[in-house]
Nucleic acid binder design. Structure first.
Length: 481
DNA sequence: TCGTTCACGC
DNA sequence: GACGTACGTGAACGAA
């Protein structure tokens, strides 16, 4: 955002960033162990797959047309050429536009057209493989030292909200959602001998920090452990009762309505996302009834009906369910318009020209990261004091990433929990909701691709749970290290 | 060299 | 009543 500056205005804020800077430099120095042999083999394997896919594509009829149009300049990687062939030459109706008004050919568009054009199915796969090879594997290989260590950079001075960023390579956007790409890339990150690789993270960090600002009593009740917000909202979205909300429906309510709404999205976009998910994910209710069938009975038979319905859901969401949150947003905005700035709880002032959504989101995003940074500094200091073998090796906004010596696991996780949920609320009295921590690490001898939940702490229940391979290890079970 | 588009994360 | 996700890094293309 242009013309916006954020500056520390308290001694604590300055100290947080000084200490953060020093801590992050030591974390960078620690480095992450990389399985270079694997990387090189996988790089070659991907190259082979890419070559085969290119060959398959070259045999499709459309390529003859494409080559006739572009001659030797034919380029399968050119979005401009692809858009021309699909929307001008084949006269497909435009599905979505880019910012400049050109027809978009992103993965959503490709996927919709891939039923009709087989070469687009291949192209979807090709883009995925190219991304994995050229953005991730290539840089991991290039940046890894002779000792097999990777040292990503963590910056505190680049982001307008005073979050952090990472580069060379960016350690904060390693694939995790697509199961295939996740495995291909994360398999490269391995623990040191006798260690386990993984992370400890804050659960629902931004929702909780937002709640500290708006103090909405309904939200507060949810966060203190009464009821399930995402299930209740999903019930509204799909016009049913909470007990009929399946796991997939809850997921959609959370990721296609609630979070977008918190970030400032509006009902039309949300409705389209929720509607398309019904078919894409084959949504069914807990009794097995397909969601589409159910909506039909409720009188919703097309997208337009559904948009109208979601408009009503949005109204309930902000004007009934979370009305104090909505009032806070208005007041916070008004104060910004009057003063020309606002302050984060953590002592940073944001001033300059900001849009509505920026004013609401910046203080949450910034302060949320500052909680992680505060905890990171203390955990790192404690590990140094006690001369632990384990190393903190990175940070991903609300997660501390460690290469952890397995015999130290229990002490570290309990200490991290103590810092992240107990010590921090003593220093920052503005944190008025219980915090949550969970940890996921790979079993001995495995890689980051195999991380599994081993520890959870639910603040509202004041309850610690050990699970997975670590529970077996701690119980004296079969896990070998 | 730089703006645009795409794709990955929280 | 109109308007409307936030924050990043990095690759590739293609016009300047």
């Amino acid at each position: 955002m242009l013309n916006v500056s954020v500056n520390p205005i308290t001694d604590q804020a300055v100290k947080l960033f000084h200490d953060g800077c020093l801590t992050l430099s030591e974390i960078e120095e620690n480095g992450i162990l990389i399985d270079l042999d694997y990387c090189k083999k996988q790089y070659k394997a991907l190259t082979n797959k890419i070559r085969k896919l290119r060959k398959l594509i070259s045999k499709e009829d459309v390529v003859k047309t494409w080559k006739r149009v572009y001659g030797k300049d034919f380029n399968i990687n050119s979005n401009a050429q692809l858009a021309y062939i699909i929307f001008d030459y084949y006269k497909e109706p435009v599905i979505k536009e880019t910012e400049t008004g050109a027809p978009a050919v992103d993965k959503e568009v490709l996927h919709k057209l891939s039923k009709k054009y087989k070469f687009l199915k291949y192209l979807e796969k090709l883009r995925k493989l190219l991304k994995a090879r050229d953005t991730y594997l290539k840089n991991i290989i290039e940046e890894t030292s002779d000792k097999g260590l990777l040292h990503p950079i963590f910056n505190l001075h680049t982001v307008v909200t005073f979050r952090s960023s990472s580069s060379n390579p960016n350690f904060q956007n390693i694939p995790i959602r697509d199961p295939y790409v996740k495995r291909v890339i994360r398999r490269a990150f391995i623990p040191r001998e006798g260690h386990t690789f993984g992370g400890i993270d804050y659960g629902g960090s931004e929702v909780k920090i937002a709640c500290c600002y708006h103090k909405d009593p309904v939200m507060m009740k949810y966060l203190k452990g009464a009821g399930d917000m995402h299930r209740d909202v999903a019930a509204d979205c799909y016009k049913t009762t909470p007990d009929m909300v399946s796991k997939d429906m809850r997921y959609c309510g959370k990721n296609k309505f609630t979070f977008p709404q918190f970030y400032g999205d509006y009902y039309r976009n949300c409705a389209v996302g929720l509607w398309e998910a019904i078919d894409d994910m084959d949504l069914k209710m807990t009794d097995g009834t397909p969601v589409k069938e159910h909506l039909k009975k409720e009188g919703i038979t097309c997208l337009d009906d559904f948009i109208e319905h979601v408009r009503n859901v949005e109204d309930i969401f902000w004007n009934k369910r979370f009305k104090v949150y909505a009032q806070w947003k208005e007041q916070w905005l008004e104060d910004y318009w009057k003063n020309g700035y606002f302050d984060m709880y953590t002592g940073f002032r944001c001033q300059g020209v900001m849009g509505k959504n920026d004013v609401i989101n910046y203080p949450v995003q910034g302060a949320s990261f500052h909680c992680l940074l505060w905890s990171l500094i203390r955990l790192h200091a404690w590990m140094k004091e006690n001369k632990l073998k384990s190393k903190i090796v990175g940070q991903i906004h609300d997660e501390i990433v460690l290469d952890m010596y397995i015999p130290e696991a229990k002490d570290i996780l309990l200490k991290a929990k103590d810092i992240m949920v107990n010590e921090i609320v003593k220093e920052w009295k503005w944190i008025i909701v219980p915090l949550e921590v969970d940890a996921a690490f790979c079993p001995p001898g495995k890689s980051w691709a195999d991380k599994e939940t081993v520890f959870e702490y639910i603040g509202s229940k004041d309850e610690v749970t050990w699970s997975g391979w670590l529970k077996e290890y701690l119980d004296g079970g079969k896990v070998k290290c």
